[in-house]
Design a protein around this nucleic acid. Sequence first.
DNA 1: CTTGAAGCTATAGTTGCTAGAGACATTAGG
DNA 2: CCTAATGTCTCTAGCAACTATAGCTTCAAG
Lengths: 144, 144
Amino acid sequence: MLTIGKLGAQARVKVPTIRYYEQIGLLPEAERSAGNQRLYSRKALERLAFIRHARDLGFTLEAIRDLLSLSDNPEQSCAAADAIARAQLAEVESRLARLTALKAELERMVVQCAGGKIADCRVIEVLGDHGHCMADHHRPVDSV
Amino acid sequence: MLTIGKLGAQARVKVPTIRYYEQIGLLPEAERSAGNQRLYSRKALERLAFIRHARDLGFTLEAIRDLLSLSDNPEQSCAAADAIARAQLAEVESRLARLTALKAELERMVVQCAGGKIADCRVIEVLGDHGHCMADHHRPVDSV
DNA sequence: CTTGAAGCTATAGTTGCTAGAGACATTAGG
DNA sequence: CCTAATGTCTCTAGCAACTATAGCTTCAAG
């Protein structure tokens, strides 16, 4: 049995984050020691590793909740999990496209800034005028 | 003079967002009509367009605050604005790299899911096991 | 002159954590 | 065995950057 600190170290998840996951029901309530400290099994570590990995891949906690409920009921069809992963892939591809356009524009801005005064600064100028845009990146680029 | 709704439409910024920007001091307090409604000049529209564009490019509100104070003092050197833009570019490049790795893994997951039962589903399996990772994307991928 | 859209303020909610306070538990060293 | 340091507990509040709701007032069109 692992204490919360060891668990966090093994899964590379911070301790308050683990407690937060328990609070929102993503992790079951942990067993407790005589002194009321949380104790975790190897199974709990696997579940947390699953969550950590899915977060790294950009899944929201809601999507992870779905995936976990799928893996808790392994007799169902794989289609649902597949759909979640496909949706996630589409999202990632869209973000990639927008980020690429965005990178081009930032590079253009930086190159054009010739080290003069603000008054001539292309960074400021480009930011002030949509007409200078080369690409259609005009949708919120919020989260990976 | 524009009402807040017209301003929002022209800059493609939602009305509550404009009020929020005023509240946090990113926009100056607007003039008011006799009936206490906010009125905006063309200058205000430009400032809001600047913010909108910078947000699209992924600048934080804090970075935008800095850029705006630079553009309010056009006699200074351009170096600070350039530094902000360069930092943003570096951030975007790092996100691009991680997203690309992530996309590869999601594709692999989707391909491997052959439409069977969850018990054989690679989506779940890959997410549960860091050993399956092909790329080093194991850093928080939080925001674009 | 009426009615419906648009505006106002204020507050609370969102996502995914992170940080702090103050109290109790555990462990390593002397 | 005692103590000091570290770890853990609960609870609350805070972060970014909005978004939504409620309950009101104002404005513009017909």
